[in-house]
Design a protein around this nucleic acid. Structure first.
Lengths: 145, 145
DNA sequence: GTTTCATGTAACTTTTATTGTTACACATAA
DNA sequence: TTATGTGTAACAATAAAAGTTACATGAAAC
């Protein structure tokens, strides 16, 4: 696994949950599908649970399920739930910020990134989990535009 | 220094070059300003040189200068020259791509990111190096919208 | 109730990307 | 020809992300 692949993992897991509606899938079972570790699955899905996207239950036959229909879950929901920034923040050295130029560069970049982030979020909102699932299960291709 | 700060470093260096027009600034001098290493400066400015944004000359009194006016250099030029992707790519495990769901997630994400990247580039194109410099040297604030 | 199976989490290790550093070849002006 | 700069390779240090182990806790089934 390379770097920040949490969003990919989350989406993959969600498609699996959607593909077996009503069924409780355990972290271990999902981890096998996602080729990762059960703890990683719990960490990621735990964040989605707090955002009300999935539910979890303990004990025998416990596991994870979708909280609502896949048509009602957008990629933005998932992205926001993970609290990730897709844009790499270009932070400067703390010792650097006494320089007016650095502060200026930082400020401009910060403003730009905030703005761009909002743009991306709006774009992600237009793709639903069900679009992804449709693409994965059939030959169809979700339109992004 | 935290992570991918190459764009910040590049911009900081360019503002310094702009602030002292005609003067050749050495990697060592810039490194002091940027609180980093001369080799790091050369690596980054070297890429900008290939893109025709700066020039370098060797020997005594050698160093770096802007190839053209700061009004003719956009943040997109710099960004493209660095060959960086501001968006974190969410790569999957090579062993994973046999799974139809993973391929689908990858494809949708890939399309989305390509598209978003173009959006960001268009946005960066609207900010010029001179805007940054103006902001850094005076109290003015470059508009992003 | 107790056994079993699952999540919840903390602590630690491994891996990978990025940056920083050292060293030295090569070019150029004085 | 010497001083001063870039160009670049090789390596070390650092930081972020993911993987792993271990164990506490909760809930169903018997």
């Amino acid at each position: 696994m390379k770097r920040s692949s949490r969003l990919s993992i989350a989406l993959h897991a969600l498609v699996h949950l959607h593909a077996q509606p009503g069924k409780q899938l355990s972290s271990a079972a999902l981890a096998t599908c996602l080729m990762t570790n059960p703890v990683v699955v719990r960490r990621i899905l735990g964040e989605l649970r707090e955002a009300g996207i999935v539910d979890s239950s303990k004990g025998p036959n416990g596991g994870w399920t979708l909280s609502r229909a896949a048509t009602e879950i957008t990629l933005r929901d998932v992205y926001s739930a993970l609290g990730e920034r897709m844009l790499v923040r270009t932070e400067s050295d703390p010792g650097d910020v006494t320089c007016a130029i650095v502060r200026s560069v930082d400020r401009v970049m910060h403003d730009f990134l905030d703005d761009a982030e909002a743009l991306l979020a709006a774009r992600l909102q237009r793709v639903r989990l069900s679009d992804l699932a449709t693409d994965a299960l059939h030959a169809g291709f979700p339109r992004l535009d």
